[in-house]
Nucleic acid binder design. Structure first.
Lengths: 198, 198
DNA sequence: GGGTGAGGTTAACCACCGTTCACACTGTCG
DNA sequence: CGACAGTGTGAACGGTGGTTAACCTCACCC
């Protein structure tokens, strides 16, 4: 149950396993209507099965949401540490790397962005705690870079700054599709760097 | 039913009518847990009555949410046009006025900010349409100013820019309380102007 | 003082939805 | 071939929660 070696083979992105299909469809639906407003029947229908079939792949609807949010947080945290390490020592370069990473993620996964900050409250307390911890560590990666960029501003201000930059970049779901992807990416990155640097 | 002359007298902010108390309590609870996760019993309990008592003041839970969101959108739109008019002709001054207004609103009403973009989907289609129309007009106020500030960027880019600035300023609910109010207001305004001007 | 209306209460109704159950089908492996 | 694991289905169960109904109380007023 815990480690199926072929699960990796199955989820080959071209031919995703049923489990992955469900997670993707659920993320889309959750983003559109909110997790509490979509029924398991809706999720099932989106992948061509009935509602109860979901329970062959997930212990519960809550477990589905929990896995979704945990994965997002893990991907973000891993990506951030990786990008920082690859960016060298200059805080300006590191900031640029973080911004590009977050912009790409937000443009690639608007649904996940929406679900992550809308449905955190629907998680059980233990799950919510784990997600929040990962999120906090992600924020602290940013705070570290911002602190080096603004040596004489208190940490609390850097943290507020980080949240503001997230808000800026994560606005994509609200202004989706209006602008071509490359133009949008460039605009957001410019604005984010400007806001973080001022 | 439609126009009670004394309703204005009742809701004197110091001694709010029961209706106002309910709306405020509901906004707080909706922001914390999401409107679908809050029962009418919860809202009632928050103002010291039982759940069904709500129905003496609102036709339904949905009507409560609808009124809440409509009021927010109206306040924002009215405030924006007013501030622009008061700011004179310079687009830079107008931008500054809009930013200050939005920052004040977000810091004063974090709960409303949260509810507005989280629970729009819970509205009936006619209500949602009205809210979206007001929101669109609010955005267009910003777009007008931004377009004068960036004369040779297409309108779509200005719109994306506006949404990004909203995201930046509306990040307050995520970083609430960490920083003292004046410092927070100044930081957000600086960042917003920088992002809008770049 | 009795009629009236606003605002509350408790109990009950009912729809929705997450979850479980008993069963069916399909492939694979011994 | 027969056992079995995996996956899906329709039906049923049970809790939750919005809404309604019936009744109460108290201020107000002719």
């Amino acid at each position: 149950m815990s480690s199926q070696p072929d699960s990796a083979l199955h989820s080959d992105a071209a031919n995703p396993s049923r489990r992955e299909q469900i997670l993707r469809a659920a993320a889309q639906l959750f983003a559109e209507r909110g997790s509490r407003a979509v029924g398991v029947d809706d999720v099932g229908a989106a992948v061509g099965v009935t509602g109860p079939a979901i329970y062959r792949h997930f212990a519960s609807k809550d477990a589905m949401l929990a896995e979704m949010l945990l994965r997002i947080s893990e991907r973000l945290l891993a990506g951030a540490t990786e990008r920082i390490a690859a960016a060298g020592d200059s805080p300006a370069d590191q900031l640029r790397a973080l911004v590009d990473f977050q912009v790409d993620f937000a443009l690639d996964n608007p649904a996940l962005i929406t679900v992550q900050d809308r449905d955190l409250g629907a998680l059980s307390e233990p799950d919510a705690r784990r997600v929040r911890q990962l999120q906090r560590r992600y924020v602290e990666e940013w705070v570290g870079v911002l602190a080096r960029l603004h040596p004489d501003t208190p940490t609390a201000a850097c943290r507020a700054r980080a949240h503001a930059v997230f808000g800026l970049i994560n606005s994509t779901p609200h202004s989706a599709g209006r602008l071509a992807r490359p133009a949008m990416a460039q605009l957001l990155a410019e604005m984010a760097v400007a806001a973080a640097t001022v």
